[in-house]
Design a protein around this nucleic acid. Structure first.
Length: 580
RNA sequence: GCGCCUGUAGCUCAGCUGGAUAGAGCAACUGCCUUCUAAGCAGUGGGUCAGGAGUUCGAAUCUCUUCAGGCGCGCCA
């Protein structure tokens, strides 16, 4: 219907006396015809006259009058009104207005899906937490967000691949390995344990699990805690070196075991959080510089051949400043080892070679300073930095019993995602993570998420769904044949559902907007408004004592509403409740 | 110092490609359970949209600036 109107508006604008082609284009690009906020503004509304007026320096109300006359001729609308500064509000014939209900019955679970992203191949990389410990509640937000936009983009026609990048190649994996070994042999070296080693309980469990199947037996190990630097970071590096030299094979089997164990537990946590990845990309698969045919070597060679790199102070640099970074960045260190940045350049080259149209990276907000250099590297390898869309996710502040829960990975005291899931469940957790724009600070109140009050929007929406579900069951008992039909509403005999139908009809637009802006939270706010209307309706109208004809229409309408809530929650990875 | 994010009702937040009286929940105060789930509904009060300037017919929304808060600025990962 909106398209019909827009075609008409298109003709109308083009036919304005003396209008230039450019002006027509500007106006047509800027105006919008949408479903009205409320029914007192008609079913549909367009701002085209105000847009046109500002471009053409005309009076918006005069223009609106002309458009109204023009649309009145059509006779496909019940009413056309001019309102406010120049809005044109359109009221549809009842049959047209109500047709969305039939559409929902027909499309069911897929109502709200579209093809606005058709033909686009999108990759979303998210979570990508270092495999050195369990996921904590900070990672949870990125997980919920990345997964939700994946579902939303898929529902709007894009081809989506979700990927987790595993940093399994850096120093932190050495620290992890050393930490596990030291825990096991701690009692033989005077209970020595370095300050910079990982201290969480999971280190002990990995160690115990390892020695239950393998052995860690060394010869003389007295020297391990001797002659160490007083600098904690240097001390850690010295210990890593000693352990590696002591027994290469123990080192590498503990390393593999620890890594696998942690990755496995991360996968489990994510699955229980209803987050699934299509690919798990290992940083180590990019190879290293010693191997000339590794991806990391090839990407640096390519940049060098094309004159994008230069040597200075013994290191190889990339000019990232020209792309807006505040300084140049090192790819290969003085000692010949690649930097983390070099891996990332190779990784992004790999992604681009895989042929995606859009690369969405979901990063913690603390990485924002990293965006420019990655963009610069994408340009440097001959692609376009516009392909990269970085979505920053701000920290979530967790509150329990009114107090902020502090997190610190090093000390091993942090609120894990696992604990959160056990506390409030996956659905409520996802819901609250997604309830605010990702790039803004989130105060996550655990007590609220479990509370029974209206303040708990999660239950408020679920309650609306459950109420309708229960009504449907009762209606089935009364009329086992379940003959719903739309007649009473179509014939305008029962008007009380109109505001519900109007709100329901906005759903597909909400999904599209959410996909365009990559903002899942607008779905949540929409569902809250929709639930509010339902609760209000429910209180004012006793459905099951209506006439049969009305009841048939009402149940049809409420079922449609329930379907929309179900679809809306579903697209966020949340299951609707049938009972509460 | 530079960069990014934020500042809207007492609290937690929507609204931001400029548009119709600035919204919601909580908290405060009033009402509504012999009827389909009261985890609900209806109502009242509460705002210099951080301050200032500018652009515009029109600014919470765009620009500049000041103030306040958060985060980031390694040949770490």
């Amino acid at each position: 219907m909106i398209e019909t109107i827009n075609k008409r508006i298109d003709l109308f604008i083009s036919s304005i006396d003396g209008i230039s082609k450019d002006s027509v284009q500007i106006i047509l690009n800027k105006f919008s015809t949408s479903i009205s906020e409320d029914l007192d503004k008609g079913h549909l509304t367009t701002n085209v006259c105000m847009i046109a007026a500002s471009v053409l320096k005309l009076n918006p109300k005069e223009l609106a009058k002309e458009l109204k006359d023009n649309l009145d001729d059509l006779d496909i609308f019940k009413d056309v009104q001019i309102a406010g500064p120049g809005f044109v509000n359109i009221t549809l014939h009842k049959k047209e207005f109500v047709s969305v209900l039939n559409k929902i019955i027909k499309e069911n679970k897929s109502f709200g899906e579209s093809n606005i992203g058709a033909g686009r191949k999108v990759q979303i990389e998210f979570v990508s937490a270092n495999p050195t410990g369990p996921l904590h509640v900070g990672h949870g937000r990125g997980a919920a967000y990345g997964d939700a936009i994946g579902r939303i983009l898929k529902a709007t026609g894009s081809f989506v691949e979700k990927e987790y990048y595993i940093n399994d190649a850096g120093r932190q994996i050495d620290i992890l390995t050393a930490s596990v070994i030291l825990r096991v042999i701690q009692n033989k070296i005077n209970n020595f344990f370095p300050q910079k080693a990982y201290k969480g309980d999971y280190i002990d469990s990995i160690g115990r699990e390892f020695i239950s199947k393998n052995k860690i037996e060394y010869g003389d190990i007295d020297f391990i805690d001797k002659d160490l630097s007083s600098d904690p970071e240097e001390e850690m590096d010295q210990i890593i070196l000693k352990l590696k030299e002591l027994d290469e094979s123990i080192w590498s089997s503990v390393k593999t075991f620890s890594l696998n164990s942690i990755i496995e537990s991360i996968k489990n946590d994510l699955e229980d959080f209803n987050v699934y990845f299509d690919n798990w990309f290992y940083e180590s698969s990019l190879g290293d510089l010693k191997n000339e045919s590794s991806e990391i070597s090839k990407s640096i060679t390519k940049l060098t051949k094309e004159g994008k790199t230069y040597k200075k102070d013994g290191a190889i640099w990339l000019d990232t400043e020209s792309a807006g970074d505040d300084k140049h960045r090192v790819l290969v260190r003085e000692d010949g080892r690649a930097t983390y940045f070099a891996s990332d350049v190779a990784y992004h080259k790999n992604k681009i070679d895989r042929g995606y149209d859009d690369l969405i990276n979901v990063w913690g907000a603390d990485h924002h300073g990293y965006i420019k250099r990655i963009e610069a590297s994408i340009d440097a390898i001959g692609s376009k930095k516009e392909k990269l869309i970085v979505k920053l996710v701000q920290f979530a502040n967790l509150f329990k019993n009114g107090k902020s829960v502090k997190m610190s990975t090093r000390s091993g005291e942090f609120f894990t995602l696992r604990e959160l899931l056990e506390d409030i469940g996956s659905d409520a957790a996802r819901f609250y993570y997604l309830s605010k724009q990702a790039d803004q600070h989130l105060d996550f109140d655990l007590d609220l998420a479990k509370s029974d009050s209206k303040e708990n929007i999660f239950y408020y929406i679920q309650y609306a769904h459950a109420r309708i579900f229960s009504l449907e069951q009762k209606y089935k008992e009364m009329y086992p044949k379940l003959d719903t039909n739309i007649e009473a509403i179509e014939k305008d005999l029962y008007k009380k559902c109109d505001s519900l139908i109007h709100e329901i009809s906005k759903y597909p637009h909400i999904i599209n907007k959410s996909a365009r802006t990559l903002q899942p939270h607008i779905i949540i706010f929409y569902l809250r408004d929709l639930s509010q209307l339902l609760h209000s309706y429910y209180n004012d109208n006793h459905v099951l004592s209506e006439s049969k004809e009305n009841m048939q229409s009402i149940i049809l309408c409420l079922s449609a509403l329930r379907q929309v809530i179900s679809n809306g929650l579903g697209i966020l990875g949340i299951s609707p409740m049938q009972k509460m």
